[in-house]
Design a protein around this nucleic acid. Structure first.
Length: 417
DNA sequence: TCTGGGGTCCTAGGACCC
DNA sequence: TCTGGGGTCCTAGGACCC
């Protein structure tokens, strides 16, 4: 075995949402393992959220893809089983896996709810040869937690991630430098991380169809055509990437958006949804101990046209009222009365919420506003998010908070991901 | 009963300043 | 009287990820 500059593991849960649902069902006495039949996790079509979020391996021969509408998925496979998402279960399952992995290295990075990077460099003396240990870890996850993972092993994060994407499920793959020509380069270019829907046709147009084609193309030409993104994917195709595991920079923005079960056509209803979203975003902002300098509103029309407006404030804020009134102003500037399918609020330009010089233009009731927001946050954490709500939501049929993970059950969970 | 939600980063163009 | 030019900030939109 050659000496490796670094040893990086990428652990990827196979069909995460679906695997976690399957494992939970079996633990509760189900006789059918839904991973063995065509099945998907999908949103609620009546609420216009009916898309495939995760799919079992047997759906492959029906050509069902993540993102398909449930309508089209059912056309492809009439006997398809569909289960709703359960974000609380996913958060618990993900945390259990992270805890298990923590035994094998002090350097662990949660990349998403179902992907983890682990730096195994210099850990061999403790736990042994990397491929053997990877098998041990994957078998332990299966035995103790009830779901399967793929593990990719390489000298950097990019190649480890590419390796974990090879054949699934329940597999360990390596992608060391000497294996790049045989294992990576033959793959279609769209399989490369960061080569998405818009880039593929541009690459095809210049005769690039495989990752190998990209690796051997002229980086100057790519840069000319694709700017910095061209340089990035050329490096990736050649296996060049050297970011460390861990040291995730702080969050940059916090947002929530929602597709509404009906088209919003009047200002009053739109305002209520904006308030509901603002309540969630502002609560998350305060719990993260940041203040926001930029407030943004995004809309999606019935015809799927998306657009947004944002504004930078003179004074950073975490006040629900300030964010809401800014959002209303932005909404008023951009909305021409077209039916709306979705609305969103996002705050950015985050700065630490440490004691600061008050601007001359701060409202005099700043502290009273803050005290009120803080009390409401505490009550919602303690008694549930519906314990206190703005009067406009009474009998409106609209939830007083919208967004976050797990809807009303886990209003604060999203901020840990 | 047709198309989610939460993020990050980049680019282009305009405003503004010197 | 013939329209410089660089730097920075801001905003809108797009591309990508899971």
């Amino acid at each position: 075995m050659p000496r490796r500059s670094r040893l990086i593991f990428h652990i990827d849960v196979n069909s995460a949402y679906l695997s976690w649902e399957a494992a939970d069902q079996l633990q509760h006495g189900a006789s059918l393992d839904i991973r063995t039949v065509p099945s998907v996790i999908g949103g609620d079509a009546e609420k216009r959220r009916g898309i495939v979020l995760a799919k079992s391996i047997p759906t492959k021969k029906y050509q069902i893809n993540t993102g398909d509408t449930l309508y089209s998925a059912r056309l492809k496979c009439p006997q398809l089983l569909i289960f709703p998402p359960r974000y609380d279960l996913y958060i618990r399952s993900s945390a259990a896996m992270l805890e298990l992995l923590g035994e094998y290295s002090p350097s662990i990075q949660r990349y998403s709810i179902d992907e983890v990077f682990m730096d195994y460099t210099k850990m061999e003396e403790h736990f042994g040869e990397p491929i053997r240990v990877a098998h041990h870890i994957k078998d332990k996850v299966k035995r103790e937690l009830g779901f399967t993972v793929n593990i990719g092993i390489a000298e950097n994060k990019l190649l480890a991630k590419m390796a974990s994407n090879f054949t699934k499920p329940d597999r360990v793959h390596t992608l060391f430098p000497e294996e790049i020509p045989t294992k990576l380069w033959p793959l279609p270019v769209e399989d490369l991380f960061m080569v998405g829907r818009a880039t593929v046709p541009k690459l095809h147009r210049i005769g690039i169809y495989t990752i190998g084609d990209l690796a051997h193309s002229d980086p100057k030409l790519l840069k000319k055509r694709l700017k910095s993104h061209g340089t990035l994917i050329w490096n990736y195709a050649n296996g060049k990437e050297n970011s460390p595991v861990g040291n995730i920079p702080g969050i940059k923005s916090i947002g929530n958006s929602s597709t509404i079960s009906f088209d919003v056509e009047d200002r009053k209803t739109a305002h209520m949804f904006l308030l509901s979203l603002t309540e969630m975003v502002a609560m998350r902002l305060r719990s993260s101990n940041y203040l926001a300098q930029v407030i943004g509103v995004s809309l999606k029309s019935q015809e799927f046209f998306s657009y947004s407006h944002q504004r930078r404030l003179y004074t950073p804020t975490d006040s629900t009222n300030k964010i809401y009134t800014t959002a209303l102003a932005l909404f008023g500037e951009m909305w021409q009365g077209e039916p709306l399918r979705a609305l969103g609020i996002r705050v950015g330009g985050l700065v630490d919420n440490t004691p600061r010089q008050l601007s001359l233009f701060d409202p005099g009731d700043l502290y009273r506003q803050r005290a009120l927001d803080t009390v409401v946050d505490k009550m919602r954490v303690k008694y549930g998010s519906n314990i206190i709500m703005r009067a406009v939501f009474l009998h409106s049929g609209i939830k007083p908070l919208t967004g976050g993970v797990g809807e009303e059950d886990y209003p604060l969970m999203s901020s840990i991901l």
